[in-house]
C-alpha cells in the first residue's frame, strides 16, 4: 500500500480562498472572504466579536477582500467602543489586494485597496486606511488615525513619512500590486 499522501496545510474553497488549517478563525458566519484570499499559519481572525444589535448574520464583522494575503501570526479583530451607553464591536472592512504582514495587529475600521501592512505593525482601533497605502514594519498607528491614499506611514507613533511612488500597485509583481502570484505560490 502506498503511503498516505500528507494532508495539505491549506484548505482551498470554491472561490479560491486558501485557509491554513493552523489558522484560528472564530465566528465564521460573520466573516466574508472575498475570494482568492490566503490566510496563513497561526493567523487569527475574530469573527465572534460582532455587533450584537444586528441579528442578521449577513453583516460582516471582518471582511478581507479579494486577492489578499494574511501572513502568519497576524491578528485581525474588529474595533470596539462605547457608544450610547452600550459597548459594541463594529464591522471591519478590508479591501482587495491587501497584504497584512506577519505578527501585525489590525483593529482598523476600514482598509482600502492595494494596501501593504508591514510585519509587526499595530493598527489601532478605528483607523481608516485609504487606498494605496504602505504601512512600514513595526509602525504603531494610534487609534482613530486616518491615512490618506498614496501615503507611506511609519514610526512609533506613526506619522506620514512619504508618498508611494507613481504606479503603486499597477505593475504586476511590484509592491501593492496584484497578489495573485503570491497566493498561487502558497500551497
Amino acid at each position: 500500500m502506498p503511503p498516505k499522501a500528507p494532508k495539505s496545510e491549506y484548505i482551498e474553497t470554491d472561490t479560491g480562498n486558501k485557509v491554513s488549517r493552523r489558522s484560528i478563525i472564530l465566528g465564521t458566519p460573520h466573516i466574508i472572504l472575498g475570494g482568492r484570499t490566503a490566510i496563513q499559519t497561526e493567523a487569527c481572525l475574530r469573527g465572534d466579536l460582532h455587533r450584537l444589535s444586528s441579528p442578521s448574520t449577513s453583516t460582516s464583522t471582518s471582511a478581507p477582500g479579494g486577492t489578499s494575503v494574511i501572513a502568519p501570526s497576524a491578528l485581525i479583530r474588529p474595533p470596539s467602543r462605547l457608544h450610547r451607553g452600550t459597548y459594541t464591536y463594529v464591522a471591519q472592512k478590508i479591501g482587495d489586494h491587501v497584504l497584512v504582514g506577519e505578527r501585525a495587529v489590525v483593529e482598523a475600521a476600514s482598509i482600502g485597496n492595494h494596501v501593504v501592512i508591514g510585519a509587526g505593525a499595530v493598527l489601532g482601533k478605528f483607523c481608516i486606511i485609504k487606498d494605496g497605502v504602505k504601512v512600514l514594519d513595526g509602525a504603531v498607528l494610534p487609534a482613530g488615525m486616518v491615512v490618506p491614499s498614496g501615503s507611506v506611514v511609519g514610526g512609533r507613533p506613526a506619522r506620514i513619512v512619504g508618498e508611494v511612488g507613481e504606479g503603486w500597485g499597477m505593475l504586476p509583481g511590484s509592491e501593492g500590486a496584484d497578489l495573485r502570484e503570491r497566493i498561487r505560490a502558497i500551497a
Binding site: 472564530l26 465572534d48 466579536l49 450584537l52 462605547l82 452600550t86 459597548y87 459594541t88
Partner: peptide
Amino acid sequence: RMSSVHVNLLKKLVQVP
C-alpha cells in the same frame, strides 16, 4: 465601569475555538 461593560459583552461573544 467601561471595562466592566466590555467584559459583559465579551462574555456573550467569545467563542471556544
